[in-house]
Amino acid sequence: MNNEPMLELSGIVRRFEQGGTVLDVLRGAELTVRAGELVALVGPSGAGKSTLLQIAGLLEKPTTGTVRIAGTDVSDLDDGKRTEVRRRSIGFVYQFHHLLPEFSARENVVLPQMIAGVSKSIAKQRADELLRMVGLDARGSHRPARLSGGEQQRVAIARALANAPSLLIADEPTGNLDPHTAENVFAMLTAIVRQARVGALVATHNLELARRMDRVLEMRDGVLVEHAAAPEAAVPEEA
């Protein structure tokens, strides 16, 4: 079975300077996410989870350290190359779906493919396939306003997978959903990660979901600490 690393972070340091004060948010974080694996990222607000996700998603550069996506060192790429890697190899899902309201569900999944240079006909076929995977093949012509919250988030997941990425980065993907809907979206996300062999890094405050992922990493004092199960102490919800 292909179990290669989709994301590798080595010795990640992120330092900010404000008014002569130096703040080390990340102090040598280490992380590997493999194909078909879901890794939960937990920790209180302000611990550095968002900074780590930004670095993993090539939206921000570390002060020092190495970032590899699907085995390729992307640490020193210029902005143009980083954008190419994001477009080709990384999918993003956020707490709020950020779908384009003037376009249908299908069009929201087609657009990132066309931006990446895929023909419209092939992009439509891929979009229909992904919408079937998330159980929305009958809702493809509907705009986001006509979809429920859970349906909108499922479209967002389909869009994140549109360009067949190696890595999926999800920031509170069920945080804006009621418990029942969150459960359904998480189950669907898990099934797709397994099927597509994507590596998934999922930041969450939902410890119930975190415990059901393959591994749980807690951000603590700028480094990542692995738990056999989620930490016993509850992680506070963000205000």
Rank of each mutant, 00 (worst) to 15 (best):
S10I: 13
V13S: 03
V13Q: 12
R14T: 13
T21R: 12
V22Y: 00
D24A: 04
R27E: 11
E30P: 03
V33R: 01
A35S: 15
L38Q: 13
A40S: 15
V42G: 05
A47E: 09
S50N: 08
L52T: 11
Q54L: 14
I55T: 07
A56F: 02
A56H: 02
G57T: 06
L58R: 03
E60Y: 07
R68Y: 03
I69Y: 04
G71F: 02
V74Y: 06
S75C: 11
L77W: 09
D78N: 15
D79F: 06
K81H: 14
R82Q: 15
T83H: 06
R87I: 04
S89K: 15
S89N: 12
F92L: 11
V93M: 10
Y94N: 05
Q95T: 10
Q95S: 08
F96T: 11
H97W: 12
L99H: 02
E102L: 10
F103R: 11
R106Y: 03
R106L: 12
R106V: 15
N108T: 07
M114H: 02
M114I: 12
I115Q: 02
A116Q: 02
V118P: 00
V118W: 00
S119R: 13
S119T: 14
S121P: 00
I122E: 15
A123Y: 05
Q125K: 13
R126K: 14
E129H: 13
L130Q: 07
V134C: 02
G135M: 11
L136R: 01
R139I: 00
G140K: 04
G140A: 10
G140I: 06
H142R: 13
R143Y: 11
P144F: 06
R146V: 04
L147G: 08
Q152A: 10
Q152P: 08
A158D: 11
A160D: 06
A164R: 14
P165G: 06
I169A: 08
A170I: 06
A170R: 01
D171G: 01
E172V: 02
E183I: 01
V185H: 02
A187W: 00
M188G: 05
M188P: 00
I192N: 01
I192H: 01
I192M: 15
V193W: 03
R197S: 14
V198T: 15
A203V: 15
A203W: 04
H205M: 09
N206H: 01
L207H: 08
M213G: 00
D214Q: 10
R215Y: 05
L217R: 01
E218W: 01
V225I: 14
V225D: 07
H227T: 08
A228S: 13
E238V: 13
